[in-house]
């Protein structure tokens, strides 16, 4: 899961202080693992260095939490590209996908697109596996089947999520 892209995405709706960013992140994606301040600072400084964000203003006082960041054009493009790129189909990627979905909903992008893209990627992978299975021996078949069943489970999740997208949008933007 890319924290940088996530924080960038959160900035799209408007400039924020570092502290606000952490709170927003924790609230939407942190669940049981809140972000450390240190992670925020280091990520933000990397983004700053790459020109994806700029410092919008500094409040009186000291320390990075006083800095207010804003996203740049390059930053928006970067988020865009990240959202559009399907994840490599592998186990336990739903947290990343979930983050992407929420961000897309927050930034009023087409969340269904993300799901469909991912779905297409999954199916392409399944095709490759199916093909290998047809040509391979029993061992290949068993290995491929294992992967196929997992991918199928993911795909089912994607389908289910696509069907519940409207409810998710309501929950996220409330």
């Amino acid at each position: 899961m890319s924290i940088g892209h996530t924080l960038l995405g959160l900035l799209e709706s408007g400039p924020r202080h570092g502290y606000d960013l952490k709170r927003a992140f924790d609230e939407k994606f942190g669940h049981d693992r809140p972000l450390h301040y240190g992670q925020v600072y280091s990520t933000m400084s990397r983004l700053l260095k790459n020109g994806l964000v700029v410092v919008d203003g500094i409040e009186a006082g000291d320390g990075p939490e006083r800095k207010r960041y804003a996203i740049t054009e390059a930053g928006v493009t970067d988020v865009e590209r990240w959202l559009a790129t399907p994840e490599k189909p592998e186990p336990y990627l739903q947290s990343t996908l979930y983050t992407k979905l929420v961000l897309a909903l927050l930034t009023h992008r087409d969340a269904a697109d993300i799901l469909d893209t991912q779905r297409a990627e999954h199916l392409r992978n399944m095709r490759v596996l199916t093909d290998r299975k047809r040509k391979g021996d029993l061992a290949d078949q068993l290995i491929c089947d294992h992967a196929l069943f997992h991918l199928e489970a993911d795909l089912r999740w994607l389908e289910l999520t696509a069907a519940r997208l409207d409810r998710l949008r309501e929950a996220v933007t409330r």
Partner: peptide
């Protein structure tokens, strides 16, 4: 409606609410 059956295809079209979507163009 089964992904593992669909995996035998070369290409996939998804139909939702009467509209079709060619998944090939997304990748």
């Amino acid at each position: 409606h089964e992904a593992r059956v669909a995996a035998y295809s070369d290409r996939e079209i998804v139909v939702r609410d009467g509209k079709s979507r060619d998944m090939e163009r997304l990748v």
